[in-house]
Simulated assay, not measured.
Amino acid sequence: MRPPEVMVTLRTLDLVAVPDMSPLDVEVAVGATAAVVAPPRPATAVARVVAGLAAPVTGRILVGGRDVTDLPPLRRRIGYVPAGGALLPHLTVGRNISYGQRRRRWVREVAESWAALLVDRLELAPTLGLRPHLLSEAQRFRVALARAMACLPEVLVVDLPTPIDGVRLPDLLDRAAPPDDPGVTVLLCSADEEVLAGVRTRVPVGDDSPPGPARPAVRS
Protein backbone atom coordinates (compact mmCIF):
# COMPACT_ATOMS: atom_id res chain seq x y z
CA MET A 1 0.00 0.00 0.00
CA ARG A 2 1.46 3.37 -1.02
CA PRO A 3 1.62 6.10 1.64
CA PRO A 4 -0.69 9.06 1.02
CA GLU A 5 0.84 11.83 -1.06
CA VAL A 6 1.88 14.85 0.98
CA MET A 7 0.57 18.15 -0.35
CA VAL A 8 3.39 20.60 -0.98
CA THR A 9 2.70 24.31 -0.57
CA LEU A 10 6.13 25.73 -1.40
CA ARG A 11 8.67 24.33 -3.82
CA THR A 12 11.87 25.87 -5.18
CA LEU A 13 13.60 24.39 -8.22
CA ASP A 14 17.32 25.06 -8.76
CA LEU A 15 16.84 28.47 -7.17
CA VAL A 16 19.90 30.71 -7.10
CA ALA A 17 19.20 33.93 -5.24
CA VAL A 18 22.59 35.62 -5.68
CA PRO A 19 25.66 34.80 -7.81
CA ASP A 20 28.01 32.16 -6.35
CA MET A 21 25.25 30.63 -4.24
CA SER A 22 24.57 26.94 -4.61
CA PRO A 23 21.14 26.06 -6.10
CA LEU A 24 18.32 25.57 -3.64
CA ASP A 25 15.79 22.77 -3.98
CA VAL A 26 13.30 22.63 -1.13
CA GLU A 27 9.77 21.33 -0.64
CA VAL A 28 7.62 22.44 2.28
CA ALA A 29 4.42 20.52 2.97
CA VAL A 30 1.16 22.14 4.01
CA GLY A 31 1.47 23.36 7.59
CA ALA A 32 5.13 22.35 7.88
CA THR A 33 8.26 24.36 8.60
CA ALA A 34 11.52 24.03 6.69
CA ALA A 35 14.71 25.97 7.21
CA VAL A 36 17.19 27.36 4.74
CA VAL A 37 20.42 27.19 6.70
CA ALA A 38 22.73 29.89 5.45
CA PRO A 39 24.78 32.90 6.60
CA PRO A 40 22.90 36.22 6.76
CA ARG A 41 23.76 37.41 3.23
CA PRO A 42 22.50 34.40 1.25
CA ALA A 43 19.72 33.72 3.77
CA THR A 44 18.27 37.19 3.34
CA ALA A 45 18.74 36.94 -0.43
CA VAL A 46 16.71 33.70 -0.51
CA ALA A 47 13.98 35.21 1.67
CA ARG A 48 13.68 38.31 -0.53
CA VAL A 49 13.64 36.29 -3.76
CA VAL A 50 10.95 33.89 -2.51
CA ALA A 51 8.87 36.83 -1.24
CA GLY A 52 9.18 38.54 -4.63
CA LEU A 53 11.25 41.55 -3.57
CA ALA A 54 14.17 40.54 -5.79
CA ALA A 55 14.55 38.48 -8.94
CA PRO A 56 16.46 35.19 -8.81
CA VAL A 57 19.58 34.58 -10.84
CA THR A 58 18.05 31.29 -12.00
CA GLY A 59 15.41 28.83 -10.86
CA ARG A 60 11.69 28.71 -10.19
CA ILE A 61 9.36 29.21 -7.21
CA LEU A 62 6.03 27.38 -6.92
CA VAL A 63 3.27 28.03 -4.38
CA GLY A 64 0.46 25.51 -4.25
CA GLY A 65 1.41 24.33 -7.73
CA ARG A 66 1.37 27.87 -9.19
CA ASP A 67 4.59 29.18 -10.71
CA VAL A 68 5.01 32.56 -8.99
CA THR A 69 8.58 33.26 -10.07
CA ASP A 70 7.63 36.18 -12.28
CA LEU A 71 4.68 37.44 -10.22
CA PRO A 72 4.83 40.60 -8.08
CA PRO A 73 4.72 40.15 -4.29
CA LEU A 74 1.03 41.04 -3.98
CA ARG A 75 0.03 38.13 -6.24
CA ARG A 76 2.20 35.43 -4.67
CA ARG A 77 0.20 34.90 -1.45
CA ILE A 78 3.45 34.83 0.48
CA GLY A 79 3.85 36.63 3.78
CA TYR A 80 7.27 37.97 4.69
CA VAL A 81 8.84 38.78 8.04
CA PRO A 82 12.15 40.49 7.19
CA ALA A 83 15.13 40.66 9.51
CA GLY A 84 14.49 43.44 12.00
CA GLY A 85 10.79 43.55 11.13
CA ALA A 86 11.07 46.54 8.75
CA LEU A 87 8.06 48.23 10.30
CA LEU A 88 7.04 51.61 8.90
CA PRO A 89 8.27 54.07 11.54
CA HIS A 90 5.66 56.77 10.82
CA LEU A 91 2.71 54.40 11.31
CA THR A 92 1.26 53.08 14.54
CA VAL A 93 1.27 49.37 15.31
CA GLY A 94 -2.37 49.11 14.27
CA ARG A 95 -1.73 50.77 10.92
CA ASN A 96 1.39 48.69 10.33
CA ILE A 97 -0.65 45.52 10.79
CA SER A 98 -3.44 46.65 8.46
CA TYR A 99 -1.09 48.15 5.87
CA GLY A 100 -0.77 45.04 3.72
CA GLN A 101 -4.47 44.21 3.88
CA ARG A 102 -5.45 47.45 2.17
CA ARG A 103 -3.36 46.43 -0.82
CA ARG A 104 -4.91 42.97 -1.17
CA ARG A 105 -8.55 43.13 -2.19
CA TRP A 106 -9.21 39.43 -1.79
CA VAL A 107 -8.74 39.53 2.00
CA ARG A 108 -10.86 42.61 2.71
CA GLU A 109 -13.99 40.61 3.52
CA VAL A 110 -12.29 38.88 6.45
CA ALA A 111 -9.59 41.46 7.16
CA GLU A 112 -11.11 43.20 10.15
CA SER A 113 -12.13 40.13 12.16
CA TRP A 114 -8.95 38.19 11.38
CA ALA A 115 -6.67 41.12 12.24
CA ALA A 116 -8.49 41.59 15.54
CA LEU A 117 -7.98 37.91 16.35
CA LEU A 118 -4.29 38.16 15.49
CA VAL A 119 -3.86 41.18 17.72
CA ASP A 120 -5.47 39.28 20.58
CA ARG A 121 -3.48 36.08 20.04
CA LEU A 122 -0.16 37.89 19.75
CA GLU A 123 -0.92 40.12 22.76
CA LEU A 124 -0.56 43.34 20.79
CA ALA A 125 -3.70 45.21 21.92
CA PRO A 126 -1.84 47.50 24.38
CA THR A 127 0.56 48.58 21.61
CA LEU A 128 -1.87 49.42 18.79
CA GLY A 129 -1.51 53.17 19.18
CA LEU A 130 2.26 53.16 19.60
CA ARG A 131 4.98 53.80 17.03
CA PRO A 132 7.56 51.05 16.40
CA HIS A 133 10.43 52.86 18.16
CA LEU A 134 8.56 52.54 21.45
CA LEU A 135 8.35 48.75 21.24
CA SER A 136 10.72 46.08 22.44
CA GLU A 137 12.47 43.92 19.85
CA ALA A 138 10.14 41.02 20.64
CA GLN A 139 7.07 43.24 20.21
CA ARG A 140 8.34 44.52 16.86
CA PHE A 141 8.76 40.93 15.69
CA ARG A 142 5.21 40.08 16.72
CA VAL A 143 3.89 43.13 14.87
CA ALA A 144 5.81 42.12 11.73
CA LEU A 145 4.42 38.60 12.05
CA ALA A 146 0.87 39.94 12.48
CA ARG A 147 1.30 42.20 9.43
CA ALA A 148 2.45 39.24 7.32
CA MET A 149 -0.25 36.86 8.53
CA ALA A 150 -3.08 39.42 8.37
CA CYS A 151 -3.23 38.84 4.60
CA LEU A 152 -3.85 35.10 5.04
CA PRO A 153 -0.83 33.95 3.01
CA GLU A 154 -0.32 30.40 1.83
CA VAL A 155 3.36 30.60 2.75
CA LEU A 156 5.22 32.59 5.39
CA VAL A 157 8.89 33.45 4.91
CA VAL A 158 10.77 34.41 8.08
CA ASP A 159 14.27 35.90 7.94
CA LEU A 160 15.62 35.58 11.47
CA PRO A 161 19.43 35.63 11.54
CA THR A 162 19.74 35.80 15.34
CA PRO A 163 17.50 34.93 18.29
CA ILE A 164 15.24 37.55 19.82
CA ASP A 165 14.81 37.52 23.56
CA GLY A 166 11.22 36.64 24.36
CA VAL A 167 10.43 35.19 20.94
CA ARG A 168 9.60 31.48 20.73
CA LEU A 169 8.92 31.09 17.04
CA PRO A 170 6.99 27.76 17.14
CA ASP A 171 4.61 29.18 19.75
CA LEU A 172 4.05 32.39 17.80
CA LEU A 173 3.45 30.50 14.57
CA ASP A 174 0.82 28.37 16.29
CA ARG A 175 -0.90 31.50 17.57
CA ALA A 176 -0.79 33.17 14.16
CA ALA A 177 -2.32 30.23 12.28
CA PRO A 178 -5.95 30.73 11.18
CA PRO A 179 -8.59 28.69 13.06
CA ASP A 180 -9.49 25.28 11.62
CA ASP A 181 -6.32 25.44 9.53
CA PRO A 182 -3.57 22.79 9.26
CA GLY A 183 -1.08 25.51 10.19
CA VAL A 184 0.95 28.03 8.29
CA THR A 185 3.56 26.75 5.85
CA VAL A 186 6.85 28.35 6.86
CA LEU A 187 10.23 28.86 5.23
CA LEU A 188 12.67 29.95 7.93
CA CYS A 189 15.99 31.50 6.85
CA SER A 190 18.72 31.38 9.48
CA ALA A 191 21.96 29.71 10.50
CA ASP A 192 21.55 30.16 14.24
CA GLU A 193 21.01 26.91 16.15
CA GLU A 194 18.79 28.55 18.74
CA VAL A 195 16.52 29.92 16.03
CA LEU A 196 16.50 26.58 14.22
CA ALA A 197 15.69 24.53 17.34
CA GLY A 198 12.89 22.07 16.63
CA VAL A 199 13.02 22.45 12.85
CA ARG A 200 13.72 19.01 11.42
CA THR A 201 13.75 19.84 7.72
CA ARG A 202 16.92 21.83 7.04
CA VAL A 203 18.43 22.64 3.67
CA PRO A 204 21.96 24.05 3.80
CA VAL A 205 22.85 26.69 1.24
CA GLY A 206 26.47 27.42 0.43
CA ASP A 207 27.83 30.88 -0.29
CA ASP A 208 30.93 30.59 -2.41
CA SER A 209 31.44 34.30 -2.91
CA PRO A 210 34.83 35.62 -1.80
CA PRO A 211 34.97 37.53 1.49
CA GLY A 212 34.96 41.31 1.36
CA PRO A 213 38.19 43.30 1.71
CA ALA A 214 39.67 43.39 5.16
CA ARG A 215 39.27 46.65 7.01
CA PRO A 216 42.35 48.23 8.53
CA ALA A 217 42.56 48.03 12.29
CA VAL A 218 41.63 51.17 14.16
CA ARG A 219 44.20 52.11 16.76
CA SER A 220 43.10 53.87 19.89
Rank of each mutant, 00 (worst) to 15 (best):
I78L: 03
R60I: 12
R105F: 06
P19N: 08
M7P: 13
P182A: 07
R76E: 09
A43T: 10
T12F: 03
W114A: 01
L134G: 13
V81H: 08
V57H: 11
P3E: 15
G94I: 05
L24N: 03
L169R: 05
R60Q: 13
S22F: 07
A51I: 07
V28H: 01
V57Q: 13
P153G: 02
G85Q: 06
P39W: 08
L196G: 07
P161E: 04
A17G: 12
L173C: 09
A138D: 14
A176I: 01
L135K: 11
D159C: 07
V16I: 12
L173G: 07
Y99H: 09
D181I: 00
I78G: 08
P213K: 04
G85N: 02
R219I: 10
R142H: 01
A217K: 06
D70E: 15
V93K: 00
F141P: 12
L117P: 07
A138N: 13
E5N: 11
A115F: 01
V107L: 00
H90K: 13
T69H: 13
W114R: 01
A115W: 00
A54F: 02
L135F: 14
L172Y: 05
D208I: 03
T69S: 15
L53C: 01
P178Q: 06
S209K: 09
A55K: 13
P204N: 10
A177D: 03
V143H: 03
A115R: 14
P182Q: 04
P182H: 08
A177H: 00
E193C: 00
V107D: 04
V81M: 09
D181W: 07
A197Q: 10
A217L: 12
A35S: 09
V37K: 10
G65I: 08
V68H: 15
P153K: 05
T185F: 07
I97Q: 04
T185S: 10
M149D: 03
M1V: 15
L145Y: 02
G212M: 05
T201Q: 15
M1K: 15
P179D: 05
H90D: 15
A125G: 09
L196H: 08
G59L: 08
V184P: 04
E154A: 10
D67P: 15
L130I: 05
V68G: 11
S190V: 02
R11P: 09
D180N: 11
A146Y: 02
A111P: 06
R95S: 08
P3Q: 15
V184M: 01
A214E: 11
P132M: 01
G100M: 02
T33Y: 02
A150D: 00
V6I: 14
V36A: 10
H90P: 15
W106E: 11
A86V: 01
L91N: 02
D171A: 10
V63R: 13
W114Q: 01
